[in-house]
Amino acid sequence: MTKTLTATLAALLPLVAGCSATEPRPAFSPAPTASVKARGETAAVATANADAADDPAIWRNAADPAASLIVATDKKAGLYVYNLKGEIQSFLDAGRVNNVDLRDMGPAGIIVAASDRIDKLNPKLALFRLDPATRTLTPLGKVAVGTGEAYGVCLYRQGTTLSAFNVIKDGTITQVELDLSGAAPAGRIVRTMKLATQSEGCVVDERTHRLYVAEEDVGLWRFDARATGATTPVKLGAADGVEIVPDTEGVTIAAEGDADGGYLIVSSQGDNAYAVYRLSDDSYVGRFRIGAGRFGATEETDGIDIGVGDFGPDYPGGIFIAQDGQNAPRAQNFKLVAWDDIKKALGL
């Protein structure tokens, strides 16, 4: 072997070592994490032996809070409607719907929107109406929302206008203004924003017109939700292994108190926990996890949602719902936690 060849091989060895497929992920040191226990759980989704349950949305029955409903996705099959005891009220075969959100639009009814990724190149927003009397969903139609694989979705009501933010898997976010006045829904893309890498969870604080989006391996971002607003994001929380351990997944808001009061909660999927931020100043306030108890812990949580206020005797101050990615020996489901228990654990 010549000296030149020997030197060349010696120079290449560090590069080969640096590309090792077995290189370990960096060690994380999460911030202190409180523990709470679930007060209930839903029946498991029907799709067994698969990552299937994904995202919940809560409808609060103001006249009878204990009769409130949960709409949740089996992303392999369709949409479930549960009561607060976790019992299945109905199921709609809607195909591969990933994330879900809803808004009570008064005369137009309770509108449910789900990200439809049956066609992974041409994403759709699937729209439904929830009937609280029969506890069933009626399909209204689908609206095109751009190109790419449909992932996250969240609704934004501004006056009488309803818009949907559709998070495409590659980090593109389209804002679609919806028209529900006709026989079938229509939509118009009014704005497009972009994060650099794979993103999913999102939520809007309609009081402050702020959109929050989770970029899975990067962290949490904030946008102006208004169609005329700036499209430049503001970084809130980093997926640095301290506040959030990657992936950064579901996002929800507990709107309380003043015009910008309350908290934002994000799923720290990498260590089975949830990070909490104060809405008024974006400051980090703590972390919690759902520990083992009568209904079990949660692991690898994707979607989350929270409703504040009275939800009946089991959840008098509000209810937090989290997807459970490991629910053996049954299929995946959703765990129900009292918001009061979380606040107490974090000293809020």
Rank of each mutant, 00 (worst) to 15 (best):
G312R: 01
L178R: 13
R207E: 11
I265H: 01
A67V: 02
D54N: 12
E216S: 14
G148C: 11
T192M: 15
S35R: 06
R222H: 00
E41W: 03
D93I: 08
A254N: 02
R96Q: 15
V266C: 09
K194W: 10
G40V: 00
F320P: 10
N166C: 15
V245W: 06
V276M: 09
I290K: 08
T134E: 12
K343M: 13
L236D: 03
D74Y: 02
L279P: 03
R188C: 14
S280I: 00
V81S: 11
L92Q: 07
A338W: 01
A292N: 14
A108W: 04
V176I: 10
S90V: 05
G95L: 01
A52E: 00
T2E: 09
M1G: 14
P30V: 01
A114H: 03
T134G: 09
A27V: 11
K194C: 05
L195F: 02
L84W: 02
T252G: 00
Y315K: 05
S20P: 05
M1L: 02
V203K: 10
N61Q: 09
A297G: 06
K142E: 11
I88S: 07
F128S: 04
G219D: 00
E200H: 12
M105F: 05
M193Y: 02
N122F: 08
A72P: 00
V276N: 12
S267E: 09
D281V: 00
A63P: 04
V143F: 06
T147M: 07
L69A: 04
E149Q: 06
V71N: 05
I111P: 00
L348W: 11
K235F: 11
K75L: 02
G261V: 01
D101H: 14
A196P: 04
D314Q: 10
T228E: 13
L127E: 00
G18N: 06
S283H: 07
S267P: 06
D282Q: 00
L84E: 03
K194P: 07
D93Y: 11
A77S: 15
A57V: 14
D224C: 07
L121K: 14
Q326I: 05
N272T: 14
Q332W: 04
G347K: 07
F311I: 02
N83Y: 03
D64K: 13
D302V: 12
G318N: 03
S90H: 02
I173L: 09
V337F: 01
G171D: 05
Q326C: 10
V242K: 13
N122R: 15
G325E: 07
L9V: 07
E87I: 03
A66Q: 15
A10I: 12
K37Q: 14
T2D: 15
D271F: 14
T228W: 09
L346A: 08
G219S: 08
I118E: 15
G18W: 10
E216K: 11
A34C: 02
V308I: 13
A66W: 06
L79S: 10
L12Q: 15
T248A: 14
G250N: 06
W221Y: 04
T47M: 02
P123F: 13
G257C: 05
R25S: 08
T47H: 03
D240L: 07
K335A: 01
D240H: 14
P14N: 10
A275H: 06
L220E: 07
